[in-house]
């Protein structure tokens, strides 16, 4: 959501989450061990993911909707179903390209470092 449309004061949602993540990183991680430290690390990763989604999510939603419209389907569920029944087999390359773009978007939020360099920050 753009700043003009939001009734909220700063910090933004992403900045709030960022502040908690920084606390986990700087204070909690260094003063814990074993299982709790491991779960702190997981929490840091989760919050970083949420920050990325808050930042990129709205653009990704628009792009996703445009890709679905381009393939003539109204929803992701409809695309999945069309792939399953073969209804879009005559456009298989377009389908694969659209699915791939969505998956790259998902990973850009979930774990960007997992991807090949040429798919990162696309």
């Amino acid at each position: 959501m753009s700043a003009e449309q939001s009734p909220h004061d700063v910090p933004s949602a992403a900045q709030l989450v960022e502040s908690v993540r920084e606390w986990l990183q700087n204070d909690v991680l260094t003063s814990t061990t074993g299982r709790v430290q491991f779960h702190s690390r997981v929490a840091i990763n989760v919050l970083a993911m949420v920050e990325r989604e808050l930042t990129m999510g709205s653009r990704q939603e628009t792009d996703h909707a445009a890709r679905l419209a381009e393939l003539g389907v109204a929803s992701q569920a409809e695309l999945a179903s069309a792939i399953r029944t073969g209804a879009l087999d005559d456009r298989i390359d377009d389908v694969v390209a659209a699915v791939r773009a969505s998956v790259v978007d998902k990973l850009s939020v979930a774990n960007p470092g997992y991807m090949r360099r040429d798919d990162q920050s696309s």
Binding site: D89, I92, V104, A110, Y114, M115, R116
Partner: peptide, 26 residues
């Protein structure tokens, strides 16, 4: 958090099958 690792596998499948989709259609 593991729920958000599902897409890692989607990505790996798409990489493994790059250029191999002709068996499904045109």
């Amino acid at each position: 958090a593991i729920g958000r690792r599902v897409c890692e596998n989607e990505y790996d499948i798409l990489l493994a099958l790059e250029g191999r989709w002709s068996s499904l259609g045109v």
